[in-house]
Amino acid sequence: MEVVILPGTEQIAVLVADAIENLLADRPEAVLGLATGSSPLAVYDELARRYDAGRISFARARAFMLDEYVGLPADHPELYRNVIEREIAGRVDFAEGAVQGPDGLAADLPAACAAYERAIAESGGVDLQILGIGTDGHIAFNEPGSSLASRTRIKTLTGQTRRDNARFFDGDVDAVPQHCLTQGLGTIMDAHHLVLVATGENKAEAVRQLVEGPVSATWPATIMQHHQHATVLLDEAAASRLERGEYYRETYATKPEWQGI
């Protein structure tokens, strides 16, 4: 796992966008994994700027979403399919149908989850997966206690996650759905490159556990320690509880420029 500590969200967004731009230059048909929440928004803004400048194209790329709420109306602004359309898919040149997500309105949710797993596998797998992390250490909607080998499935959201996400529902925690469909930890670990973004002091303990704690279902993101190509991008606040912060800074400062992330 590579840990990169940068001054703020702007520098993080540039680094992630560089990785995606380079990936699409080498493989225009690459498969991206898209996350929602606050963490990737600056990345999506940077990608949209580069698309507008003619530097990058998604025309041959595909993308899969991490998760989706269960039961929100199809036109609800916080349905993750609509969020992804608003924040990135509709701002660049993805082909129609190239961005897929789990179907939280399906009549048969287990069948929808199985179909989503098949779709990811048939695409050849995700090349670069963008991730955020919850204050309780969840990635996607794999809440504490999730199986480290889990696949796409229905999950019940914890009270903490619903309180954290209430900011997207005008502060009304009761408006946040209780259930979701989410890629499992095993599904996420199949991606070729994991890129996790965390900013703010409220993520500092989750980051400490992710990077320096034991691998445990209590902190689901810690499974990333077993991934062969995982990058964790942090601002100073999110990195504030790391014991080896100076080592991570030194390692990145002396890294060969050709390596990228």
Score class of each variant (00 low, 15 high):
1 M>T: 08
3 V>F: 00
4 V>D: 02
4 V>Q: 05
4 V>R: 08
5 I>A: 00
7 P>L: 09
16 V>R: 04
17 A>W: 01
18 D>G: 06
23 L>V: 02
24 L>Q: 02
24 L>S: 01
25 A>F: 03
25 A>V: 07
25 A>Y: 07
25 A>I: 00
26 D>C: 11
26 D>H: 09
27 R>A: 07
29 E>D: 14
36 T>L: 14
37 G>W: 02
38 S>Y: 04
43 V>A: 00
44 Y>K: 05
54 G>Q: 04
54 G>D: 07
54 G>Y: 08
55 R>K: 15
56 I>E: 02
59 A>M: 12
60 R>I: 04
64 F>A: 01
65 M>W: 05
66 L>V: 04
72 L>D: 00
73 P>K: 11
77 P>T: 00
78 E>S: 13
81 R>W: 13
81 R>I: 15
82 N>Y: 01
83 V>T: 05
91 R>S: 07
94 F>C: 04
99 V>Q: 03
100 Q>P: 02
101 G>D: 01
103 D>Y: 11
104 G>C: 09
106 A>N: 13
109 L>Q: 09
115 A>I: 11
117 E>I: 15
117 E>W: 14
120 I>C: 03
120 I>N: 00
123 S>W: 04
123 S>C: 06
127 D>L: 13
129 Q>I: 09
132 G>V: 03
136 D>C: 14
139 I>W: 02
140 A>S: 10
141 F>T: 03
141 F>P: 01
142 N>D: 12
143 E>V: 12
146 S>V: 13
147 S>N: 10
147 S>A: 15
153 R>C: 05
154 I>K: 14
155 K>G: 01
160 Q>D: 13
165 N>A: 13
169 F>H: 08
169 F>V: 14
171 G>R: 12
177 P>Q: 04
179 H>I: 14
179 H>E: 15
181 L>C: 07
181 L>A: 06
189 M>D: 09
189 M>C: 13
191 A>M: 09
197 V>D: 01
199 T>A: 11
200 G>D: 05
203 K>Q: 12
206 A>Y: 03
210 L>R: 03
211 V>C: 05
212 E>I: 11
213 G>N: 06
214 P>C: 02
216 S>D: 11
221 A>L: 12
222 T>G: 06
227 H>W: 12
229 H>V: 10
230 A>G: 11
230 A>L: 09
231 T>L: 13
234 L>F: 04
237 A>D: 08
238 A>W: 03
238 A>C: 09
240 S>H: 04
244 R>K: 14
249 R>Y: 07
249 R>M: 13
250 E>M: 07
254 T>M: 13
255 K>P: 01
259 Q>A: 11
260 G>T: 01
